[in-house]
Computed example of a mutant assay.
Amino acid sequence: MWSQKRMAAELRNAADADLQGSLPEIASLVRGIRRYEAGEHRPEDPYRTLYCRVFRMSEEELFGARPEVPERDDETDALELAQRISATDVGEETLSRLEGAVDDLAVAYPRTPPAELLIRTRRHLAYVARLLDGKKTLAEHRRLLVTAGWLSLLASTCHIDLRQFPAGAARLRTAAQLARHTEHAEIAAWCLETEAWQALTSGDHRRALDLSQGAQAVAPKGGSPYIQATAQEGRVWARLGGRRETRAVLRRVEGLVSSLPTPDRPEHHYRYDPAKSIAYTATTLAWIGDPAAEPYARQVLARLESADGPARPRRAVSARLDLSLALLAADQPEEAAHVTLSALTSGRLVPSNFWRAAEIIERIEARRLPEATELHEAYAHLRQASA
C-alpha cells in the first residue's frame, strides 16, 4: 500500500519533462492527494492523466465517464430534496436516509457487479462531501463522517473485487482514517478484515493471518466483523496448510454463531448471517483437501440457488468453486470440471476470484482430463473479457 508521499512522487515521475517543471512541490501534491482520498474533490487535468499513467488504467475506469453536463441520480436527488425541506443544512431526515442508503448498497453487494456498485457508492460519497461543507451540529458531523467511512469501505471492496489495488488501498486508508476520527471500532475492524481478504487473494498468507487476527483484536467481541475476521483466519490457516489450526478456528466460529440470530437483511455485506458459517466451512475444508467439504458445499449451493431465498448469484458462483475443489478431494474430477465450467461461464465470477478458478483448472489439467482444454479456453475468454 503506497503512502501519500509515495503517490505524490509517482505522479511527478509520470509527468512529461515539460509538465514536471510546472508541477508543485511534493508537499503540495500530498495535500491534493489527501483531499482527493477524503472525497473533497476530484482531480482535473493534468492530474487525471497522471493518475491514469500511474495506475495504468483508462480515465473512465479510474474516475468514471466524464459527463458533458452535471450528472444527476435519482437517489441523491431525493436526498438533496430532503435536505432542502429540513430545518437545518443537514437535518435528521437527510442523515437517516443517507444511513439507509448505505445499508441498501451493502445489501446490493452480493448481487450487483462491482463496477456498477462502485458508481453508485461514488455518487453518495460526493454528496456526503458536499454536506460536510455545510453548517451542521457536532453530532451531525460525526454521523456524516461515519457514513463516509462505510461508503469508503464499500468502495474499497469494489475496487479490490476489480483488482484495482492502488485505488482500493486509497479508499481503505480513508475509511480507516475516518474510523479513527470517529472512534468507530466496527469500521476499523472491517478495514483490517478487508485488507486481510485482499492479502489472502493475493497469496500473501502470513500478512493475511496478522491482519485477520488484528481485526479480531480491534472488533467488538461477538460482533459481525469479529466473527468474519475469525472465519477469515480459518481460511488463511487452510492456505498455510495448518490442519490443526484450521479445525480449531472452525470450532471457534461454530461457537460464535450457534446462538446468533439471523439479521433482518441477511444479505447485508456487513451483517454476519449465521448461514455464512456453512459456506466458510465448505471453503476452508476444501482448501485443506478434506472430502468432508463436499456435503457442506452442496448444501450451500442448494440454499443459494433456491427460489425461496434472496438472489445471491456471486456467492453461488463461489460455492461452485468450493464444490469443485471438494469434488477433486473426493476423487470426482469429471463432475468437478463440469461445475467449474458452469462457474466460468456464469458471467458472475469477479476478478478477485479468478485465482481460485485457475487453481482448480491447474489440478484438472494435472489429471489429464479431456475437459481441461475447454476449461482453459473458457478461463482465457473470461480474463480477456475482464481486461
Rank of each mutant, 00 (worst) to 15 (best):
E140H: 05
E140F: 08
E140Y: 05
H141R: 15
L144K: 09
L144E: 09
L144N: 11
V146K: 09
A148N: 03
G149S: 11
L151P: 00
L153P: 00
L153S: 01
A155Q: 04
S156T: 06
T157D: 05
C158V: 12
H159S: 12
D161K: 09
L162H: 03
L162C: 02
R163C: 13
R163L: 14
Q164P: 03
F165D: 13
P166Q: 06
P166K: 06
P166W: 10
P166G: 07
A167C: 12
G168K: 09
A169M: 06
A170P: 02
A170Q: 14
A170Y: 04
A170S: 15
A170T: 06
A170L: 15
R171Q: 09
R171S: 11
L172E: 03
R173W: 04
T174W: 06
A175P: 13
A176V: 05
A176F: 14
Q177F: 06
Q177N: 07
Q177S: 11
Q177M: 06
A179G: 06
R180F: 04
R180S: 06
T182N: 01
E183C: 10
E183Q: 14
E183A: 15
H184A: 06
E186I: 11
I187T: 01
A188L: 10
A189W: 07
W190Q: 01
W190Y: 15
W190M: 05
C191S: 09
L192V: 02
L192G: 01
L192N: 02
E193M: 01
E193F: 09
T194I: 08
E195T: 11
E195R: 15
A196F: 12
A196N: 05
W197L: 14
Q198F: 08
Q198D: 13
A199M: 12
A199P: 01
L200N: 04
T201H: 13
T201N: 13
T201C: 08
S202H: 08
S202G: 12
S202K: 04
S202T: 13
G203H: 08
D204R: 15
H205R: 10
R206L: 15
R206Q: 15
A208Q: 06
A208W: 11
L209M: 12
D210N: 08
D210R: 13
D210P: 01
L211V: 13
S212F: 15
Q213R: 15
G214L: 10
G214P: 05
V218W: 04
A219C: 09
P220Y: 07
K221F: 08
G223N: 05
G223Y: 01
S224R: 02
P225L: 09
Y226M: 01
T230F: 03
A231Q: 08
E233G: 09
E233Q: 15
G234D: 06
G234Q: 03
R235H: 11
R235I: 15
V236E: 03
W237G: 02
W237E: 04
W237N: 01
W237R: 01
A238H: 05
G241R: 02
G242L: 00
G242D: 07
R243S: 12
R243I: 12
R243A: 13
R244A: 15
E245C: 07
T246F: 10
T246K: 02
V249P: 10
L250D: 00
R251V: 07
R252W: 01
R252Y: 00
V253E: 08
V253Y: 10
L256N: 07
L256R: 02
L256E: 11
S258I: 05
S259G: 05
T262Y: 07
T262N: 07
P263R: 00
P263V: 04
P263G: 10
D264L: 12
R265T: 13
R265V: 14
P266D: 12
